[in-house]
């Protein structure tokens, strides 16, 4: 009995809302148990006790916890995360400006990861124990072990030394006089505005941070792809096709690749957590101005509203990514669709 893919997706969505609720409760409690008074932080050491007390009351911090949470959840559902203490603007507005930058960076990294890692995995498996394999495994091992900030800083230093005109900070050349468009993705906005100079500059700016961010994933996915390819090469169905003279390249790039991509795609979903974590660091190094650097700023200043929104959005990223991964796997593997029935 085939389960309709939609049913599976709707089930996932239901679970997804539950996870979000749980996440918001955790963030809410965490934000209230950590030491330090946000009102005092906001007003600075010079403010009087009375002023701090007044701000606390304004922020609703004297209410019972449950009603504080309900209030918070109600507002959050309506897209209101309160005011940021640091920027003195609504958190939602800050997020709207910073999230697209991060999404752009992360998506570019994911594309990088698959574009580099899958072919590398296939190659290393095809040329097992030859120099291509040894080199590929060395690269992937390096990718897995070297921390991404080290890669990022090294890339910056190398670029600055050998190619001084290459941009190593920010998302766009300041001289271009371009202030974003409807999507917030520089590449897409550039295309929409018919500004090819913007697109070129944005792409230049994107390459180094995206590469630095993807390096760990490249290592991981290469290894998984290689292992899956090797495992599947030994299967009888490869022999079936070989015995009937189907060319090797078709067997490898069509039959084996699709079957062997299930494992790396699954890993991708998990890899996403570290991707978001690494994005915090990479954005700082490259002055990316994304939501991760915004979050880091918020954490350092104990900007509670901003912190909880950032954590919630990170969780959302992770969940959505895994939802997509699940859907992709369901489409790749017919056996997944048969589960539940007999």
């Amino acid at each position: 009995m085939q389960q309709h893919p939609m049913v599976a997706i709707l089930r996932r969505l239901g679970a997804f809302i539950l996870v979000l609720v749980a996440l918001s409760v955790m963030i809410f409690i965490l934000a209230r148990v950590v030491p330090g008074d946000p009102a005092r932080m906001a007003l600075g050491p010079a403010a009087s006790q009375a002023q701090v007390a007044q701000l606390r009351a304004e922020m609703g911090m004297n209410d019972p916890l449950l009603s504080q949470y309900l209030h918070y959840a109600w507002n959050a559902v309506h897209g209101d995360f309160g005011m940021s203490l640091v920027s003195q603007r609504p958190v939602t507005q800050d997020l709207a400006e910073t999230v697209p930058a991060t999404v752009e960076l992360v998506l570019a990294s994911v594309i990088f990861m698959f574009a580099v890692a899958i072919p590398l995995g296939v190659l290393t498996a095809q040329y097992r124990d030859r120099w291509v394999d040894v080199l590929g495994r060395l690269i992937s091992l390096t990718g897995v072990t070297i921390p991404s900030f080290l890669v990022a800083i090294s890339l910056q230093l190398l670029a600055a030394r050998f190619w001084p005109s290459w941009p190593i900070l920010g998302r766009l050349d300041h001289g271009l006089n371009f202030h974003g468009g409807p999507t917030g993705f520089m590449l897409i906005d550039g295309v929409l505005a018919w500004r090819w100079d913007v697109v070129a500059s944005a792409a230049q700016h994107l390459i180094l941070p995206a590469f630095a961010l993807s390096i760990a994933g490249i290592g991981q996915i290469t290894r998984i792809t290689r292992a899956a390819m090797l495992e599947n090469q030994r299967k009888d169905h490869v022999l079936t096709l070989k015995s009937f003279g189907v060319p090797e390249r078709v067997i490898v790039f069509r039959y084996l690749l699709k079957l062997s991509s299930i494992a790396p795609v699954t890993i991708m979903g998990l890899e996403f957590a570290s991707l978001i974590g690494n994005a915090f660091v990479i954005e700082m190094i490259f002055s990316w101005g994304g939501f991760a650097s915004y979050g880091l700023e918020a954490i350092l200043h104990k900007d509670l509203n901003a912190v909880s929104a950032v954590v919630l959005v990170s969780g959302l990223f992770f969940i959505v990514a895994n939802l997509i991964v699940d859907v992709v796997i369901t489409l790749l593997d017919p056996r997944q669709r048969q589960k539940g029935g007999r």
Partner: peptide, 29 residues
Amino acid sequence: FSLIMQDPLSSFNPVFLIGTHLDDVMRFA
């Protein structure tokens, strides 16, 4: 000549349709 394999569940790639296997074999032959 042609080979009839035994089928220990794994003579076909599980993520491709039976028809795809047959068509590829026929196409290349």
